[in-house]
Design a protein around this nucleic acid. Sequence first.
DNA 1: AAAAGTGCTTTGTTTTTCAAAGTTAATTAA
DNA 2: TTAATTAACTTTGAAAAACAAAGCACTTTT
Lengths: 98, 98
Amino acid sequence: MVNPIEALNKIFDSRIRLGVMSILIVNDSVSFNELKQLLELTDGNLASHLNTLEQADYLKVQKAFIGKKTNTTYFITDLGKHAFKAHLDALEKMIKGV
Amino acid sequence: MVNPIEALNKIFDSRIRLGVMSILIVNDSVSFNELKQLLELTDGNLASHLNTLEQADYLKVQKAFIGKKTNTTYFITDLGKHAFKAHLDALEKMIKGV
DNA sequence: AAAAGTGCTTTGTTTTTCAAAGTTAATTAA
DNA sequence: TTAATTAACTTTGAAAAACAAAGCACTTTT
């Protein structure tokens, strides 16, 4: 038997990052503020997790003005989608004892 | 919509603890050494994660002698089974966007 | 007698998490 | 026009967690 945990993605150890990804995989764009409210996080905490995901190229950011008000929107990347799905597959396999 | 991550169990943030639980949920008893080999961990690291799970009453330990050689065996508790299943359910719900 | 295995505990470093405060720039309220 | 508020961070610092390595008591194997 192979080590069952090595296919799990370390980046998705975090509940928060899992939450972000599961939101972004179904909604193709979500604002900073929406994420903050959905996940009930402080600005700094959310920003740092988003940063971790961005560093990994799992999501990308778009800063825009709505009128003259800034709006920051997050999108999942293809890499992010694949990584997330691979993680879920690995989880499933692990649980099923394959 | 409710915060999707609050139903996730913080104890299962760790890949290692997830791995231990998924092994113990299908094998009703596993030795320290088997876990160590399956998960490719150092003694100290494994022991501390097992300790976290034990503190939570998610698993119990049985120390026995096989001949005169010590053997430490781990079992999942009912509480552990339920907590693990609840976590997996919460994960599934989160991913499906319920 | 020396080496190696079991199952830890202890120690200490590195990494991660998080809240709180500070920041820049715009917006609305008084 | 000044004050308060919102957005989206960054910085700081503290606490918690992860982890490897070493130590330990005991036993078996060589």
